[in-house]
Amino acid sequence: MTALVGRVVLIVGASAGIGADTARVLAADGARLMLVARSEPPLAELTEELADYEVAYTTGDVTKAADVARFVAATVDRFGRLDGAVNNAATTQGGPLDEVSEEDFDRIFAVNVKGVWLCLREQARVMRGGSIVNTSSIGGLRGSSGMGAYQATKHAVIGLTRTAAHDFGPRGIRVNAIAPGPTESPMLDATRRAIPGGVEARIAATPLRKAGTGAEVGATASFLLSDRASHISGVVLPVDGGFLA
């Protein structure tokens, strides 16, 4: 696959799970990558794994405006421009809404919503056309019990995506969201622990009767970043094995 040959793509939240698998897919598709996460060791390990490709990394916290500005600038300094981005950094939480602490509520919104907004803002300031993909969730398209604060953030990501598609479209920047269903990752493992049986119930209700993989989500991001999706913007694309069908 060569759909992204030469494109410079920033992946935020790239250290594990969907983000790391997306990096593997995009590298194989020819993209030049800047990987970002809070922790350096997994980024260094992934960059070493992808040594045959043009990949760099830097650390940063998406809840801090100065960090976001720095790692976007570092991408442009390293590669000369920014053509695309995957905003994937996120955290999760379980429990009914009336049991969520104010501290946890603020934390999850800071990462999952403010972080996406800060990334969109800084990316749009340096991009001259291109494509941005935000990671939402099927939880951003429907409700269910036990993960209310998380689902609220993923609804908000969809709102940010649709607004950004309008705001940035006249500049030639497309903005879309992907909405994974249960996808094998450390975050899915955390959900299994937080809501015993919940993940298995969702998989059982999925027409394809399986969880997705990070590579499948990454392939969807690659499509949206490529010219094959040149007239697609403001879309929320489920990658869920038919769960929402």
Rank of each mutant, 00 (worst) to 15 (best):
Y57A: 15
D98E: 13
V199K: 00
N176G: 01
G115D: 10
G80C: 05
G129S: 01
I18T: 06
V55L: 09
I203Q: 05
V62T: 06
R193W: 09
V126Q: 00
P96Y: 02
Q93E: 11
M187V: 07
N88A: 08
A73M: 02
V36L: 11
D167A: 15
R209P: 06
E48M: 09
P186E: 12
S222C: 11
R192D: 00
Y150R: 06
R107N: 11
I18D: 11
G159C: 07
T75R: 00
R174P: 01
G172Y: 00
H231Y: 06
G197H: 04
F109V: 15
A245S: 15
M1I: 10
P170E: 13
A164Y: 07
S226E: 04
S101Y: 15
P207R: 03
L208Q: 12
F223Q: 07
P96A: 06
G242F: 02
G130T: 02
A37W: 09
E40F: 06
E216T: 01
T91G: 03
G169C: 10
T191P: 01
P170K: 11
T161M: 02
P41M: 02
H231C: 05
P196L: 06
A89H: 01
A44E: 12
R228T: 05
P196Y: 03
A65V: 09
V25I: 14
T191R: 12
H155A: 04
G140S: 06
E184V: 11
A245K: 14
L120V: 13
K64W: 12
R107L: 13
S145V: 15
G159T: 14
T191H: 13
V116L: 09
L160I: 14
G19F: 09
A74G: 04
A110V: 04
L244K: 13
D29Y: 08
I132V: 14
E45W: 08
T91A: 05
Q93V: 13
L120Y: 05
N176F: 03
G148R: 09
R202Q: 07
H155S: 03
S230K: 01
A211Y: 04
N87L: 10
M1C: 09
D52A: 15
R38H: 02
E40G: 07
R125N: 03
G19Q: 12
V113I: 07
R128W: 00
A3I: 12
T163I: 08
I132A: 05
W117H: 15
F71R: 04
E102Y: 13
Q93L: 14
T163M: 06
G6E: 08
A219F: 00
S101A: 15
L225S: 10
E45K: 14
